[in-house]
């Protein structure tokens, strides 16, 4: 419990720092956001622009602006889109569920594929199966997700017609994007599972268990896997962030609605409140997930909380 509180206390300053950094982002951007608001609307006089600046608090000193920004953020107000005037928080709420769905689906896929192939490779260490699995895993890490996505679409949706081409509703629309996004993570997990299993399999208590005549399968299941779980959970936590960010590209390939597409179009149209809010949101989610992983750690392996 104390460990949990400690970790939580550590996460708070990180999140504050993240918010300050994203806040600064908007102010580092060249050009005047107020002028940008008026472009395409017949222009505006200097007084008009100043009035808007005053209203938005842009004439205040930077620290004051940050405090005001944080007050709003804590109340769930992330500002409004320069382009559509829609509240950024609403845009995030609308776009996050599909992204989360995609991320979780690819995470699930990556864990199932990664763990099972990792075990297979470890058990058959040095044999052809091991080599093939590891080669595929290496290829998986090396393959750009956007190219994989395009290939999946043209083979499984256009050519074989097994899956809908347009993503959207239903699990069938989720399969191909999840594979495109989760393949690399599956490869990384498989390698991790393999190497930690190999390490554990050589240790004394496993050798003892074997010597006691326990069936090989039970040895792996009961002893080895449990101990190999810790590095695997770490990597899963790290990969979650990677997947969340990877959705930026995969959503683009599959024309899927989500935070990623929202972010990219905001960046392309220089809609900074949206970009800022989106980046902040994803970073905070990532920090929270890592916190969760840390806590999970402690729960699985009591030694950790004592050590630190």
């Amino acid at each position: 419990m104390r460990y949990a509180l400690q970790r939580l206390a550590l996460a708070v300053p990180v999140m504050l720092g993240v918010s300050a950094l994203t806040f600064l982002m908007l102010h580092l951007v060249p050009g005047d956001p107020v002028a940008a608001m008026f472009i395409g609307h017949g222009g505006a006089s200097a007084e008009q622009m100043n009035e808007v600046r005053e209203r938005l608090g842009l004439n205040d000193p930077l620290p004051v602006q940050y405090v005001n920004y944080m007050k709003n953020v804590l109340q769930g107000d992330l500002g409004r889109s320069i382009r559509t005037n829609e509240p950024v928080s609403e845009m995030i709420l609308r776009n996050f569920p599909p992204t989360l769905q995609l991320t979780l689906a690819s995470m699930g896929l990556a864990i199932v594929l990664g763990v099972s192939f990792g075990i297979i490779a470890a058990v058959k260490r040095g044999r052809i199966v091991d080599n093939v699995v590891m080669l595929i895993a290496l290829a998986g890490v090396s393959m750009p997700s956007f190219w994989l996505g395009l290939l999946l679409i043209s083979i499984f949706a256009v050519w074989l017609n097994w899956f809908p081409i347009i993503g959207g509703g239903g699990w069938r629309g989720l399969v191909l994007p999840a594979v495109a996004l989760g393949f690399a993570a599956a490869a990384i997990i498989a390698r991790m599972v393999r190497s930690s299993l190999l390490e554990v399999l050589g240790e004394n208590y496993v050798v003892t268990a074997r010597a006691k005549g326990l069936a090989e399968q039970r040895v792996i299941m009961r002893h080895a896997l449990r101990n190999a779980a810790i590095p695997v959970i770490t990597i899963v936590g790290l990969q979650f962030g990677g997947l969340l960010a990877g959705a930026v590209i995969v959503e683009q390939v599959f024309s899927r609605q989500g935070i990623g597409r929202m972010l990219v179009s905001a960046l392309q149209s220089r809609d900074f409140p949206v970009a800022q809010g989106g980046v902040l949101f994803v970073a905070v989610v990532y920090v929270l997930v890592n916190l969760l992983v840390d806590l999970l750690y402690g729960a699985i392996d009591p030694r950790i909380s004592v050590e630190r």
């Binding site: 300053p13 990180v14 999140m15 720092g17 993240v18 950094l21 994203t22 982002m25 580092l28 951007v29 060249p30 979650f240 962030g241 990677g242 969340l244 960010a245 990877g246 930026v248 590209i249 972010l263 990219v264 960046l267 220089r270 900074f272 970009a275 980046v279 994803v282 970073a283 990532y286 920090v287």
Partner: peptide, 24 residues
Amino acid sequence: MRVMDLLLAFPGILLALAIIAILG
């Protein structure tokens, strides 16, 4: 190291995206 922790809080491609927002 605290600054590094901050940078690490942006997963994957996200930090690069944010920097491109600033640089163009």
